[in-house]
Computed example of a mutant assay.
Amino acid sequence: MTGYLTTHVLDTARGCPAKGLKIELYRINGTDRTLLKALVTNDDGRTDEQILPQSEFSTGEYELVFYAGAYLDASDTPPEDPRFLDVIPIRFGMSEQSHYHVPLLLSSFGYSTYRGS
Rank of each mutant, 00 (worst) to 15 (best):
E56C: 08
G45R: 01
P103F: 05
E63C: 13
A74E: 08
T77P: 00
A74L: 06
P79E: 11
A18D: 00
R46E: 12
V87P: 05
L85Q: 05
P17N: 01
E96A: 15
Y100D: 01
S112H: 06
D44H: 08
S107H: 03
T2S: 15
E61D: 11
P53S: 07
F109D: 09
I28R: 08
Y26F: 15
T6K: 11
S107Q: 09
S112G: 13
Y111M: 03
E80S: 13
M1S: 15
T7Y: 00
Y71C: 02
A70E: 13
N29F: 07
Y67F: 15
L10I: 12
A70S: 13
Y67C: 07
L36E: 09
T59L: 03
R115V: 08
V102A: 01
L85N: 07
D44E: 13
D73G: 03
D81S: 14
S108M: 00
E56R: 10
P82T: 09
D48V: 03
Y111N: 04
S95W: 10
R46F: 10
A13Q: 13
D11M: 09
C16H: 07
S55D: 15
Y62G: 01
S117L: 10
L21I: 08
G93E: 13
L25I: 10
Y100H: 04
G30Y: 10
R14W: 03
S112K: 07
L35I: 09
Y67I: 06
S55C: 09
G60Y: 05
M94C: 15
G110C: 07
L105K: 06
H99R: 14
V87D: 03
T47F: 05
G116I: 02
A18K: 01
G60I: 11
Y100Q: 03
S112W: 07
L10P: 00
L5I: 04
E56Q: 14
D43H: 06
D86C: 04
Y111T: 03
T59F: 02
S58Y: 06
L36G: 05
P89K: 04
K37Y: 02
S75I: 11
R27L: 15
I51K: 01
R46Q: 13
P17Q: 01
G60L: 11
T113F: 06
